[in-house]
Amino acid sequence: MTTDTLNRAERSRSLFRFAAPQVFYPIAGRLAPWFAGIAAVLTVVGLYIGFFVAPTDFQQGEVYRVIFIHVPAAWMSMLIYLVMAFWAAVGLVMNTRLSFMMSQALAPTGAMFCFVALWTGALWGKPTWGTYWVWDARLTSQLLLLFLYLGFIALTRAIEDSRRADRAGAIIALVGAINVPIIYFSVQWWNTLHQGASVSLTKAPSMATTMLSGMLIMALAAWAYTFAVAFWRVRSLILERERHTDWVGAELEAEAKRQ
């Protein structure tokens, strides 16, 4: 019995080790440039497919090419909020400081993607639907997501005491997460001007293969970009929060020498 349980205990402790800001800080620093590179390569490939390989759409013509940023941005804005809520929950339950920092490092990127989804959606809506904006359930709930992001960012920055800021932010993240399935299923639950999903887990995608592959590659690029930016941002947060520790002192001195 003993070796097996010991191994398991050791392994779980080693996993937990990554929750220590001191351990995670250099890992994030090493990974971020790789993710940024992957994002850049995928973006070039995705845009090439999107503009030069994917054909003209039968009903929308060329304007449908907005899809290569609109859909990845919209997916990312929903996913990032769920991940934020997940880290907020982990932070509340396990009392791990790094979880809260991760959730705060993701928020601005999520807000950026949310705005991009709304902006490109408006520019896409005008030539196809005939309007930049309507208050249907899909568009309204996506706008609400942007307000939730901005509210989260403003609240966590407004509260000086970082422990209280973490908790207040976690509550917005968790409560607001209810909105994500509402956005996703709004086109099924209610009559909306926005059409249903072209790609979902439950049915075959209703898109030509080259169009679909361009869109999925751009979605992967958005994932890689999010990892890179969130890792860079969390490093600043860690330094800020852990500034009284010896290891941050050593890190800062090393950084000073490098410059």
Partner: peptide
């Protein structure tokens, strides 16, 4: 009057 299109994308 607004146009509502479906979720199908394919070549002409």
């Amino acid at each position: 009057v607004l146009a509502k299109h479906d979720e199908n994308y394919m070549p002409v």
